[in-house]
Amino acid sequence: MKVAVIYHPDFGSKGHSVLKARIKPSFEALERSGLLEGEDVQVFSAEAAPLALVERSHTREHMERMRTEPSERMYHEVALLSAGSVLRAAEMVAEGGAHHSFAYTGTAGHHASPGSCWGFCYYNDVAIAIMRLREMGLARFLIVDVDPHFGDGTRNFFGEDPHVYHVNFNHQVSSNYDGEKRNHDIGIGFDADDETFLRELSAAMEMAKDFDFQICFVVFGHDSHADDYGGFELTTAAYPKMARIIKEASGERGVVFVLSGGSIPEVASKAIPEVISVLSGR
C-alpha cells in the first residue's frame, strides 16, 4: 500500500470548534477524487491513543487539567482520538504496512508542551508517536512544520534532542538554524506567497535530507492559505508542490502527514486530496 489515510467521523462532529467544519467536506472530496479506488490509497479508522502512553508524554499536572478544566475537558476524548490517529499513521509506516500516511485529526498538537497547551492543541500528537516509534526501535526523525504558527510545543519536547531535526515555518521575519541541535526556524513574514514559501522549503529540505532520519513527520496546517486565518498568503497550488518537495527529499523514507491548523472547508477539500495524490505517486 502506498498511502494509509487515518480518519474518524468524530473529528468532524466533536473536534475543536475552529477546526472541525473542514473535516467531513474534505473527506468527501477525497472519496470523490477516485484516489480510494484500488489498493494504493486505503482508509483506516482512528482509535484513541493509549492513555498510559499519553501520560508518559505529558506531566501529571497537564493530564489533570485536561480531565477537570471545562475548556480542556470538552476536547479530552477527541484529543486522545487525534493523537491515536497520528500514532496509527506512524506505526503503519514504521511497520511497512504503508509507504506514506495522512492522519486526519480533530484537534491539533504542535502547541502542546509536556506541561501546557494552547491554540487548539491539547496533546502533542507527533511527540506521542515518536515516543512509541522509539519503543519500536526507531531513533531519528525529521519534523517539518509548515503551519504558519511556531510549533513551540514540539520544540519544547525536542529542542535539545540531537536525533530530531525540526524545520519550523513561522510568521517571524528572521530565521535561525542551530546545526548542533538540528533546529531550523524559517521566518517568512505574514504575507509570504507561494514562491517565497516553496523556495525556503526547498532550501530547508536540501539541508535536512542529509540528516539520517528514518521517518519524516509533516505538521500540515492549511491555515497558511490566503483565505484562512494563519497569515501567509498561499494558494491551493502550493500544497501539492510542498508535498512533492518533501517526498522527493525524503527519498525512500516514509512521510507521515499530520493535519494541523486550518478552518476553511473549501481549502481543505482541495488541498488534502492533492497532497494524498502526491504521496500516492499519481
Score class of each variant (00 low, 15 high):
M63S: 07
M63N: 05
M63P: 02
E72W: 14
E72P: 00
M74E: 00
M74P: 05
M74A: 08
Y75I: 04
H76Q: 12
E77H: 04
A79R: 05
L80T: 11
S82K: 10
S82R: 11
V86R: 12
L87A: 07
A94D: 07
A94M: 06
A98Q: 07
H100W: 03
Y104N: 11
T105D: 06
G106L: 08
A108W: 04
A108D: 06
G109V: 00
H110I: 00
H111F: 04
S113Q: 12
C117H: 05
W118P: 00
Y122H: 10
Y123W: 03
V126E: 05
A127I: 06
I128F: 03
M131F: 10
G137L: 01
A139M: 12
F141C: 09
F141M: 06
D145H: 11
F150H: 15
E160P: 01
H163I: 13
H163L: 14
Y165M: 14
H166K: 07
V167G: 09
H171W: 13
S175G: 13
N176L: 15
N176I: 14
Y177G: 12
D178G: 13
E180R: 15
D185M: 15
I186S: 07
I186P: 09
I186D: 10
G187P: 03
G187D: 01
I188N: 09
G189V: 10
F197R: 11
L198E: 03
E200M: 09
